[in-house]
Design a protein around this nucleic acid. Structure first.
Length: 236
DNA sequence: TAGGCCATCTGGTCCT
DNA sequence: AGGACCAGATGGCCTA
């Protein structure tokens, strides 16, 4: 674990993640960010009526498998059309390139371009769904009064959370091994027991009691309790 | 108003 | 050939 600490200590993203996590708690805007642009309900007013399934992986398979119904495809094409027109009118950026490969009729080129755009949009929606799923399992303040974690903050917090869990697991294994040897907990603890965040942690970090508070546990494991755990912010 | 974050479009590349 | 993936560009919304 020493090498883990070392690698984390030199990781520029660690501090960034922690600052992100803390700033996430500082946000106080009323609700989650509304969709924007041509995303459903966005200010562009061009709702795509995208209905993601609850399983990102399944949906990804569906996307790649081309299982979309004809109606949905048509609907999406219409919305794509709307976005395209908006882009042409300068309301949205549509890039500067040609609409499709050369050697095809302009209408075919455009049709191809539209289908590529729709595919890419679906792909990004799948990615966002997966990120939402990740947010739902990361311990942070899931509350309507707290702004949704940004993509980068989600990824960085997830990374730290995984490291934290791995550390906790390692501590538990050590504890089990220790107890199996029939040794007392009062024995001086190994000095090399460090959390990924560089704090010294006991083999059993909660002062020998199973009634440790959440902030106590979180602080012992991460050193960033309030930034990572919603329970740390809950009123008793 | 600047900066952060985001959705979208687009062309290129790689893979099946 | 078609689809997935990626990165650059652009413009909109929101917050400090």
């Amino acid at each position: 674990m020493a090498e883990l600490k070392t690698s984390l200590g030199s990781d520029p993203y660690l501090a960034l993640a922690q600052s992100y996590g803390q700033s996430a708690f500082a946000y106080s805007s009323a609700a989650a960010e509304p969709p924007r642009g041509c995303y459903p309900g966005g200010p562009g007013g061009v709702g795509l009526d995208f209905h993601p399934s609850s399983n990102p992986l399944g949906k990804a398979a569906e996307s790649s498998g081309g299982e979309q119904s004809g109606d949905d495809e048509e609907e999406e094409e219409e919305e794509e059309e709307a976005c395209f027109e908006a882009a042409k009118g300068g309301k949205l950026k549509a890039g500067g390139g040609a609409l499709g490969p050369p050697g095809k009729k302009p209408k075919e080129q455009r049709s191809l371009r539209l289908s590529i755009n729709a595919r890419e949009r679906r792909r990004m929606h799948d990615l966002n769904d997966a990120l939402d799923g990740l947010r739902s399992v990361i311990p942070y303040a899931h509350s309507p009064s707290v702004r949704k974690l940004s993509k980068i903050a989600t990824l960085l917090l997830a990374k730290n959370y995984i490291l934290m869990q791995a550390q906790a697991l390692e501590e538990m294994r050590r504890l089990v091994a220790y107890l199996n040897q029939g040794q007392s907990l009062s024995t001086p603890l190994p000095a090399a027991t460090l959390t990924p965040f560089g704090q010294a942690a006991a083999v059993y970090p909660f002062s020998g009691t199973a009634l440790a508070t959440c902030p106590e546990k979180c602080t012992a494991f991460s050193g960033a309790a309030s930034a990572l755990c919603k329970h740390c912010n809950e009123k008793p």
